[in-house]
Amino acid sequence: MQTTILKAASNFLLPVLLLFSIFILLRGHYLPGGGFIGGLIASSAFVLDAFANGLVYTKSMLRFHPGFLMPLGLTFSFLAAISPFFVGKPLMHALWMKGHIPVIGKLGTPLIFDIGVYLVVIGAALTIIFTISESR
């Protein structure tokens, strides 16, 4: 399946899709989107890349095993969940920074939580697909 056209296209598509997934992730609080969808789009981007350039290439480009994204993401989400304890609020209480940032809107713990979800989804999906396609 490693055609030249797909290869050439994917070299452009991967960064574009990744950027798009991050955009989807960040705007999730206001418009359709969020960590789950963003994560799935990002994993699709990597899978597409693997189809075009081969699994070995994609993995070497990633530099680390995608599985490590899972604990990382869990840590993000967990910290976001427990951070209200430090200011004496109950678990999962949302904390927001003042001010407004374009696209993202407001910055706060729910966003960090969503980033965690995003990372876990990418990690899980890629781990599953990479392991399966590696196995003979």
């Binding site: 609080h29 359709p32 960590g35 869990l74 969940a81 706060g108 939580f113 969503d114 965690g116 876990v120």
Partner: peptide, 25 residues
């Protein structure tokens, strides 16, 4: 402070559920 209610439910109102869900994943 969110306008997409589905997402707000997932990451805020029912955040613990989501946390557990990603653990399951």
């Amino acid at each position: 402070k969110g306008k997409n209610v589905v997402n707000v439910i997932l990451v805020d109102f029912r955040g613990i559920d989501t946390l557990i869900e990603v653990s399951v994943l």
